[in-house]
Amino acid sequence: GSPGIQSFLPPGWEMRIAPNGRPFFIDHNTKTTTWEDPRLK
């Protein structure tokens, strides 16, 4: 199987799917959430 997208996120980050189907990202380091992919910064 191919590695999940989770493995490509920075340490402490998690990806979830919102009720509307959009992915969002949780930064457990700062306890914040964002719509922006942290890998694109």
Rank of each mutant, 00 (worst) to 15 (best):
17 I>N: 05
12 G>W: 04
9 L>M: 10
5 I>R: 12
5 I>L: 12
39 R>P: 02
14 E>P: 00
8 F>G: 15
35 W>D: 06
15 M>D: 00
10 P>S: 03
40 L>W: 11
12 G>H: 06
11 P>E: 11
8 F>T: 15
5 I>F: 12
18 A>G: 11
31 K>V: 06
18 A>W: 03
17 I>R: 08
1 G>Y: 12
40 L>F: 11
28 H>D: 05
36 E>P: 01
41 K>F: 11
40 L>M: 11
33 T>C: 15
27 D>E: 04
6 Q>A: 15
11 P>K: 08
29 N>P: 02
7 S>N: 15
14 E>N: 02
6 Q>T: 14
37 D>I: 01
31 K>N: 15
35 W>Q: 05
36 E>W: 12
33 T>F: 12
21 G>T: 05
17 I>A: 04
11 P>S: 08
8 F>E: 15
2 S>H: 12
16 R>A: 09
11 P>A: 10
13 W>S: 00
37 D>T: 01
27 D>M: 01
17 I>W: 11
14 E>Q: 05
4 G>D: 15
28 H>A: 06
1 G>K: 13
32 T>L: 08
23 P>Q: 11
14 E>R: 01
39 R>H: 05
23 P>I: 13
9 L>F: 07
21 G>C: 15
27 D>T: 00
8 F>P: 15
38 P>G: 01
17 I>V: 10
24 F>K: 07
32 T>M: 10
27 D>P: 00
34 T>D: 02
7 S>Y: 09
18 A>R: 03
25 F>M: 00
33 T>K: 13
38 P>L: 01
20 N>E: 03
32 T>E: 08
15 M>G: 02
21 G>E: 04
13 W>N: 00
3 P>M: 12
34 T>G: 04
36 E>G: 05
37 D>E: 05
35 W>R: 04
36 E>C: 15
28 H>S: 07
12 G>F: 05
31 K>H: 14
21 G>A: 02
12 G>E: 03
40 L>T: 12
8 F>I: 14
13 W>F: 05
15 M>Y: 04
13 W>I: 03
13 W>G: 00
40 L>E: 14
15 M>I: 09
22 R>M: 11
38 P>Y: 00
33 T>S: 10
41 K>R: 11
11 P>R: 06
29 N>Q: 07
29 N>I: 10
21 G>Y: 01
30 T>F: 05
17 I>T: 08
4 G>S: 10
2 S>Q: 13
14 E>S: 07
40 L>P: 09
30 T>Y: 04
4 G>K: 13
27 D>R: 00
20 N>T: 07
16 R>I: 12
28 H>V: 08
14 E>H: 03
17 I>P: 02
20 N>H: 05
25 F>A: 00
28 H>G: 06
34 T>E: 02
33 T>W: 15
34 T>Y: 08
19 P>T: 10
33 T>R: 11
41 K>S: 14
5 I>N: 14
24 F>T: 08
6 Q>N: 15
23 P>V: 12
12 G>A: 03
14 E>I: 05
1 G>W: 13
19 P>E: 10
27 D>W: 02
16 R>G: 08
29 N>G: 06
2 S>D: 15
34 T>R: 04
29 N>T: 10
2 S>K: 13
29 N>V: 11
27 D>V: 01
21 G>F: 02
10 P>G: 04
40 L>Q: 12
9 L>A: 01
21 G>W: 00
33 T>I: 15
29 N>A: 09
19 P>R: 12
6 Q>L: 07
30 T>V: 03
14 E>A: 04
18 A>Y: 05
34 T>W: 09
12 G>P: 04
38 P>V: 03
37 D>C: 05
7 S>G: 15
31 K>L: 09
32 T>P: 00
23 P>E: 11
38 P>N: 00
30 T>N: 10
22 R>F: 11
10 P>L: 06
40 L>I: 11
18 A>N: 07
26 I>K: 03
39 R>V: 05
20 N>S: 10
30 T>C: 09
30 T>E: 06
6 Q>P: 14
40 L>R: 07
35 W>A: 04
31 K>T: 07
36 E>H: 13
34 T>P: 01
30 T>M: 06
36 E>I: 11
24 F>D: 04
40 L>N: 12
40 L>A: 11
7 S>M: 11
10 P>Q: 03
17 I>L: 11
17 I>M: 10
36 E>Q: 11
35 W>E: 06
14 E>T: 07
18 A>S: 10
6 Q>S: 14
4 G>A: 12
26 I>Y: 14
31 K>E: 10
11 P>Q: 08
16 R>F: 09
24 F>M: 11
25 F>I: 00
41 K>D: 12
2 S>A: 13
9 L>S: 01
5 I>A: 14
28 H>E: 06
3 P>S: 12
2 S>F: 10
2 S>E: 14
19 P>I: 08
32 T>F: 09
36 E>D: 13
22 R>W: 11
4 G>M: 07
38 P>A: 01
21 G>D: 04
29 N>M: 09
9 L>Y: 03
12 G>M: 05
20 N>V: 01
10 P>E: 04
1 G>R: 10
7 S>E: 15
28 H>R: 04
23 P>M: 10
14 E>W: 01
34 T>N: 03
37 D>N: 01
30 T>S: 09
41 K>N: 13
19 P>K: 13
19 P>G: 09
36 E>R: 10
29 N>L: 10
23 P>Y: 12
40 L>S: 11
25 F>H: 00
33 T>V: 15
35 W>L: 08
10 P>N: 03
12 G>N: 08
5 I>K: 14
4 G>F: 04
16 R>E: 05
12 G>T: 02
31 K>C: 15
15 M>S: 04
24 F>W: 08
21 G>H: 05
